[in-house]
């Protein structure tokens, strides 16, 4: 013990051993039982921690599935694959799994007029809060890209002043729908059906002054739709996707070019409707 080096080594070794022993005993006596399925379910999820399911992250959602019986199809990035493998673990049916993708229900951007020059914080939420927003249309896209930063998958971009969804990258997590202060991001079935890219509730005469591509509620699409899938609501055309078969008549009839195909081309009116296009 007279050798200080030996003494120091002994003290440190003893302290280390004591600490190790305490931790081993503690983890043994204070172990908490955790359902092993939680780890398995977590492994099935996409692991993006996007929060689209409404839980704090993938691990939190997995815990909610195992402990509280949460629905298992909420992981949009994981898609059917994740839901199927979770169903295998939990021994439950996968249930309803709507395959939805986001789209921006505005195609104003550069087509839309400007009420005043805005030079504040570059954020849609901030711009929307200043005197109702700088765009002439009180319903249209502000183009600062709050949705772009909300998207974890790089599916959104602002092009010509309006946000655009790349539906090949979109996973349907719905994070962007919460980010838009004007609620322009909507979910639409994956099937190639047209979408109405306007939310302006004003009457037609007022819309014409604001935006070159706004819905004027003329009703041409309603009259021409062979499926009676389109109706007017608050001066905007709306499509009932349970009836729409994606024929594209409305796309060609719309005088203001408000109705667009979001992905895939129009199918010929005479052609038989493909199986996957009917929901």
């Amino acid at each position: 013990m007279n050798n200080p080096i030996v003494f120091a080594v002994v003290v440190l070794t003893l302290l280390g051993l004591a600490g190790g022993l305490i931790l081993v005993l503690a983890s043994k006596f204070m172990a908490v039982y955790e359902d092993p399925r939680i780890a398995e379910v977590t492994a099935c999820l996409a692991g993006a921690n996007c929060g689209g399911c409404g839980y704090a992250g993938c691990a939190d959602y997995a815990k909610a599935i195992v402990m509280d019986g949460a629905p298992i199809h909420k992981c949009a990035p994981g898609g059917d694959k994740a839901a199927d493998s979770i169903a295998a673990i939990m021994g439950a049916e996968a249930g309803d799994r709507p395959a939805m993708r986001a789209f921006v229900s505005c195609n104003g951007g550069e087509n839309c007029g400007v009420r005043f020059d805005y030079s504040g914080i570059k954020s849609c939420a901030a711009a929307a809060g200043v005197a109702g927003g700088p765009t002439a249309c009180a319903f249209g896209c502000l183009g600062f890209g709050d949705c772009v930063s909300a998207c974890k998958f790089g599916a959104l971009s602002v092009q010509h002043g309006v946000a655009v969804v790349d539906r090949t990258k979109c996973t349907g997590c719905t994070a962007c729908t919460k980010a838009c202060p004007r609620g322009l991001l909507k979910m639409k079935p994956v099937a190639p059906q047209p979408a109405v890219l306007c939310r302006n509730k004003e009457r037609g005469a007022a819309v014409v002054k604001m935006c070159k591509t706004g819905c004027i509620a003329c009703g041409l699409c309603v009259k021409n739709c062979p499926q009676q899938a389109i109706f007017l609501h608050n001066n905007v055309a709306r499509i009932d996707y349970t009836k729409c078969n994606g024929c594209g008549t409305c796309v060609s009839k719309c005088p203001k070019k408000v109705i667009h195909f979001m992905d895939g081309g129009p199918t010929s009116v005479d052609a038989p409707v493909p199986e996957y296009a009917v929901l």
Binding site: V11, L12, L15, G16, G19, G20, I22, L23, A26, S27, M30, A31, V32
Partner: peptide, 20 residues
């Protein structure tokens, strides 16, 4: 070196105890 050792053990211990 001893403080690092002791604090590391301590934090682990706090974590285990809190979890339980």
């Amino acid at each position: 070196i001893i403080f690092i050792l002791v604090i590391a053990v301590l934090v682990q211990l706090i974590e285990i105890t809190l979890k339980r």
